[in-house]
């Protein structure tokens, strides 16, 4: 089992507010790591630490180590290279005000890919992977911002895949998407995890159960339990809190 993300004793503070308190976990290639927990438990902050977009929040203070592919992200010389290795999808879809084609080709172009054929192929593959190709293949030059919410979210996923990331992080991707599209994206994720690592932050407990291989349960900035999906959702998780949460007794 190849560990692609390793997190050791990670803590994050925003001023006095403690967003993440001393968590350690890992994610492996070929698996989906589900991160569940009630609102404000530090899940999004956790994702921001992986690709270091936490740096843009000037009040944040990070302790502990985050390793991607065995390398400490704090010690990497090019933060842009790091971000190119990680795809990010956020709760609300953001179609960039570019054409659909340019949306998907954005990251490769920024990374220096100029070859037209290569880009064409990449755009097609990514849009197919995110189950959007059939709907947009005839209008690749229309604006990405004019797509519907569910289509935009899939466009965001296509974009996140466009730089061939080793890791794909999704933060509550289904909030702005209808159930049918959610199911389609879930199928896509199952397909994708064969080749890459997926971190799925979700507040839908059943979604985590359906998709994840390992689950981390966070509550009030702390990691309550981190184990294989069957243990977390089984009859005997280590913590009573986990048992209560996955059965909907609180949260």
């Amino acid at each position: 089992m190849q560990k692609t993300i390793e997190i050791e004793n990670l803590s994050v503070n925003y001023g006095k507010h403690n967003a993440i308190d001393d968590i350690s976990l890992f994610a492996c290639k070929g698996e989906i790591l589900g991160v569940i927990g009630p609102a404000n438990s530090g899940k999004t902050t956790f994702l921001k630490c992986i690709n270091r977009t936490i740096d843009f929040t000037s009040t944040s203070k990070v302790n502990g180590t985050v390793k991607v592919g065995g390398e400490n992200v704090r010690e990497m010389t090019s933060v842009h290279d790091l971000r190119r290795r990680i795809g990010m999808v956020f709760p609300l879809p953001v179609g960039l005000p570019l054409t659909i084609y340019d949306n998907v080709a954005y990251a490769p172009r920024m990374a220096g890919v100029r070859d037209k054929d290569e880009l064409d192929e990449l755009v097609e593959t990514c849009l197919k992977q995110s189950a959007l190709w059939d709907e947009v293949k005839d209008r690749l030059d229309s604006l990405g911002t004019k797509l519907s919410g569910g289509q935009q979210q899939r466009l965001t996923i296509a974009r996140a895949l466009s730089h061939r990331p080793e890791i794909l992080c999704l933060d509550e991707f289904s909030i702005a998407v209808d159930p049918v599209t959610t199911m389609r994206i879930e199928d896509v994720l199952v397909e994708l995890k064969k080749e890459i690592t997926i971190v799925l932050v979700t507040n839908l407990v059943q979604q985590a159960r359906r998709l994840s291989d390992r689950v981390a349960f966070m509550n009030q900035s702390k990691l309550v339990e981190f184990d294989e999906v069957d243990t977390i959702f089984g009859e005997n998780p280590k913590e009573k809190l986990t048992f209560d949460y996955v059965r909907g007794y609180f949260g």
């Binding site: 977009t53 843009f56 842009h80 971000r83 190119r84 990010m88 990251a107």
Partner: peptide, 15 residues
């Protein structure tokens, strides 16, 4: 959000 999306895709500030 446009800027954040772009940064997340590995684009630099000036890009």
């Amino acid at each position: 959000s446009f800027r954040e999306a772009s940064w997340n895709l590995g684009a630099s500030k000036w890009q």
